[in-house]
Nucleic acid binder design. Structure first.
Lengths: 327, 327
DNA sequence: CTGTTAGCGCATTCAT
DNA sequence: ATGAATGCGCTAACAG
């Protein structure tokens, strides 16, 4: 009817009726039904964001980034939280497909191809963040986590450490493997034997792994941890066992929280441009939604940052140590 | 058609056809269009969550809580972030109304009644969290922040402090006023003059306020801060000015992050059961959505927790001080 | 047990 | 410049 025109193409309607319509709209507090519009236009102006974990500050910033970028383009975002369960991930993606979202941004649990395939099979554009998806032809926005891990390990090597262990997350998760491999790269380059333990991306996982490392007859003097939770567990455990960080044990990590949120940033480690990842991903997605781009999957690799704080120190010989910290 | 029945009321259709239908569904990868269902049923199975700030860990946990509780009941959640702008808040609520969400949970910017009125005027049930809304007849889930603030201030008084200042947030925000009043209550009870500065709920706000407090000829020995951001700014500024926390200056606060996310929880203060607030709010909302309750607004006040960490110490006399910390 | 009719709210198309 | 017809995908109600 004329109402629709008055609201969507005001020029095509006479000023007089337009005024009358707008007055009535105001009077009746009429709000156009976007569901109806969606049905008619076959687009919902909604994008879905599937993320495994929001308890991690990492996930939070992604939410902010996607949310901001999407809103700027007039899109609404619905979030689906998978709690790290791949079945739930697929279920959530089905649900989004049912809602006929115009596109999906996925931070996958594992790098299995099913979720992406499903979405693409439904004709819904999808962009993956954080992980490479070798089995899918899909847009990916991520950092080179393996290279970052190598850099991180080299930093410890340069400090003189030789007993460096790696405590990573669940071996099924790509990130855990990538970071372990970057560490292994650096170790082998330095002519040393990698020493990797896969566990769990959690405080408990970090605590458990660290305990067995420190109980060895020759414990490591430095640990590369797979993420901030593991680092936290490691630091707690070290303290509990009377091992001082950083003087007795250096710890480096990934995915630190924003440093402006803590009084004393403690962990030295790699920081990812989380917000930017989310924004770039949203842009790539909108390219496809709006038909500005069609073609094979694009990959965008963003730079990480290396932040030095207080969880690392030079490796001291026993002699140096006894001099500096007399009993 | 029969497809609909096969999927929604499988009993009412013969096993044979049902099998055929399900086979076809599988074959064609058919996913029912929830948008169409929404139009037909006049319900979308979506609830909106309007929150002002997600950079605060506080907001994050609320997201988790709402998300979990809603999902458990089969509802999807769309998040709307207002960045603390009341105009944006109203705009987002209009947008949610346009999407015909079945209900709204609102963590308001100010306690102006417009947003709630609008939502209720549209026939959309709404529940407010965190703040009292004296001008609206609406369900509210919150803590007694004024009482908590009183308790917090008493703690400082019991430590022997007499020069206690309060650094709160934007005076337009209810929380800022409530917390200031709780502080003032405790001070007056103890026969002292309240000393409140309203500023901004941010690190910068805390820094600025603390600087002018500490530059006084008789600076306070303790500060009650309006939230964790202000506390952070206060601690940074104190350190910059060579004032040691907690020995020279005690700081207490509200809305700390989960203590399992930091290595050394530093600030003594009030912790709200954020997740629980979100869950209770979702329950109240579903009561109304599902018609299980209609009537005047209900209020649920949840208990806060008081956590003691390392940002406070007893007030020492100058003599005591010189004894303990010889120059 | 299955098919038909009709309408949820909207906007494109065509007719006036 | 406005109105009428039509269909987006779905299901309640009614026929068969």
């Amino acid at each position: 009817m004329t109402v629709s025109r008055s609201l969507n193409q005001p020029e095509t309607v006479s000023p007089a009726t337009r005024r009358r319509v707008l007055a009535a709209v105001d009077e009746l507090k009429y709000v156009p039904n976007v569901v109806g519009q969606g049905l008619r236009h076959r687009r919902t102006m909604v994008v879905g964001f599937v993320v495994s974990d929001v308890s991690n500050p990492f996930g939070v910033q992604q939410i902010q980034g996607v949310s901001r970028a999407a809103r700027a383009q007039g899109y609404t975002v619905v979030f689906a939280i998978t709690d790290g369960d791949p079945d739930e991930e697929l279920r959530q993606i089905r649900a989004l497909a049912g809602r006929r979202v115009d596109g999906i941004i996925l931070s996958p649990v594992y790098n299995t191809p099913d979720a992406v395939e499903f979405s693409q099979g439904q004709g819904i554009p999808i962009v993956v963040i954080d992980y490479a998806m070798p089995q899918n032809d899909v847009d990916v926005v991520r950092c080179d986590t393996r290279e970052a891990s190598r850099e991180l390990t080299r930093y410890l090597l340069n400090l003189g450490h030789t007993q460096i262990a790696m405590l990573s997350g669940n071996e099924k998760i790509v990130t855990a493997v990538d970071r372990a491999e970057g560490y292994a790269d650096a170790m082998r380059e330095a002519g040393m034997e990698p020493d990797v333990t896969f566990g769990d991306f959690s405080v408990e996982g970090g605590a458990k792994g660290t305990e067995s490392l420190l109980r060895r007859t020759e414990p490591p003097t430095a640990i590369v941890t797979g993420n901030n939770f593991i680092a936290l567990g490691a630091a707690h455990t070290a303290r509990r066992l009377g091992v001082e960080v950083p003087s007795d044990l250096s710890i480096v990590t990934f995915d630190n929280a924003r440093t402006d949120m803590v009084l004393d940033p403690f962990f030295t480690g790699i920081v990812q441009p989380v917000m930017e990842i989310a924004e770039v991903a949203t842009d790539l997605l909108l390219d496809r939604i709006l038909g500005r781009f069609e073609g094979r999957g694009r990959t965008r690799i963003l730079q990480t940052q290396f932040e030095i704080h207080n969880s690392t120190s030079e490796k001291l010989t026993d002699k140096q140590r006894s001099l500096r910290k007399p009993t």
